[in-house]
Each structure stands twice: as C-alpha cells, then as structure tokens.
Design a protein around this nucleic acid. Structure first.
Length: 222
DNA sequence: TGCCAGGCCGGGT
DNA sequence: ACCCGGCATGGC
C-alpha cells in the first residue's frame, strides 16, 4: 500500500488537530521568533520575547534603536545571544532600509525575490526564511526542519541524505499550494517528530506506525 | 547528569 | 560539494 502526503496529513490532523502555529502575536513577533528559535527550544524563546514585550520593544524601529549589547541581555534566555542579537539587528536593518520598517511592504515583494533577499542576510538560512514567509507573511513556502527530515526519512519516504531543497520540493510538488495546509503540516510534523525515538534514525515498534506506516514511495497526487 | 532544542556560518578538506 | 566546530541557555 502507498499513502499520499495528503492522506498522511489527514490522519495527523484527525489525531492531533490544529497546532495553532505560529505561537506569537502578529507578524513582527513571528519574524523575531523565527531568528530566536534557531536550534533552540521554543520555551527559551518565549522568555526572550517576553523580555522584549515588557520593554515595549516589539516594533521594528524601536528594536533597531536598541544598542546591540542591550539587545543581547534581553534575548539571553534564547541562547546564542551574541550571534542572535547581531542577526536580529541585521534583519531589522534590512527591513528598515529596504521596506521602511513595514512588514506589509516587505511581504508585497514577490515571494521568490523576497526569499532571495532574506537569504542574503547573514543569519537567515533556508528554514528561517521559509518560516518568515509562511508564518509571518502567509505565503505558500513549505518549511522543512530537522523533524520533517527525521520523520520522512525514518518512514522510508525519502533518503536520509536528502538536502533541504530536495525535501522542500518533495513536499511542495505533492501538495496543493495552500498556506493553511503548509502551516498545519509543518507544525504536525514537528509535533509527531518530538514524540518518539529521539535522534535515532529508526525506532523499532514506534507507536506512530498507525499514523505513519512505512509505505515506500508515495503516490504522486493525481 | 548529560543530552538536546523549530540552524547557520566560516573555515577547512 | 560536503564536513565540522562553534555558538549558549534552560528543561527534562
């Protein structure tokens, strides 16, 4: 038997329901969170965001006005705080210089162009760029992360060696281009990716098998 | 207690 | 084109 990615999605959604991503208030907070959560648990990011919110700094111009050393202290709980302070500052500089600090203007850029512009910023890699496009901009760019890779490879749907773009293309080529679907699917993969097995490539007797049966290559849609 | 978390960069092969 | 060490705090 062979499952389509849609069928897998439907089963995951039926089992776990909507995941309410991105947890955060508005696109700017999502943008900041996307940088802060790099290789970091969301729990830690929440504290950093709370600090920024309490200081009333969740605004592009105000945050850009904060000296980097001060920014470092505010986001310290999110880890890698020196790197991330610089990265945030670079993103803000781009946002302000290129789009007058207006996210609305930024997201009116054609998606492929915007993605390239984001990737040109130091500290924004493919996953962060896609997270910003999808979860802050509501643009249809599928987000791949370590869990996406882990779950799909573990169940034999893709090679363990696939790179980011192969995985992204794999998902996008078999799914309708739908923001809501991309949003929930990524969040569901993160949800189930956390459940079992840790970092092991395979998990004998994984209780997820009912939801994610090993099925070989997926049937392409239509 | 040690391992891991919603990556990315820069330098080395 | 890969491969690797570095980056850092907090939760389980």
């Amino acid at each position: 038997m062979s499952d389509t990615l849609i069928e897998v999605y439907n089963r995951l959604f039926a089992a776990y329901g909507p995941q309410q991503w991105w947890p955060g208030d508005g696109p700017f907070e999502v943008l900041v969170g996307a940088v802060l959560t790099q290789n970091t648990s969301w729990k830690n990011v929440e504290k950093a965001i709370r600090n920024l919110k309490e200081a009333d700094l969740l605004d592009p111009h105000r945050l850009y006005g904060v000296p980097v050393e001060e920014l470092e202290e505010l986001i310290r709980p999110a880890g890698y705080f020196r790197q991330k302070a610089r990265r945030l500052h670079d993103v803000l500089e781009y946002l302000i210089d290129q789009h007058a600090g207006a996210l609305e203007a930024m997201f009116s850029t054609p998606m492929a162009d915007l993605r390239d512009q984001l990737l040109a910023i130091r500290g924004i890699g493919p996953e962060t760029a896609d997270s910003i496009l999808l979860y802050a901009g509501n643009l249809p760019s599928f987000v791949v992360d370590t869990y996406t890779h882990r779950v799909l490879a573990r169940h034999g749907w893709v090679d363990f060696q696939v790179d980011y773009y192969e995985l992204k293309d794999f998902m996008e080529s078999q799914l309708p281009q739908d923001v809501k679907l991309y949003n929930e699917y990524h969040a569901l993969l993160v949800r189930v990716g956390k459940l079992h097995c840790g970092k092991q490539p395979r998990c004998a007797g994984c209780p997820l098998e009912d939801l994610l049966p090993e099925s070989g290559p997926l049937e392409p849609l239509s």
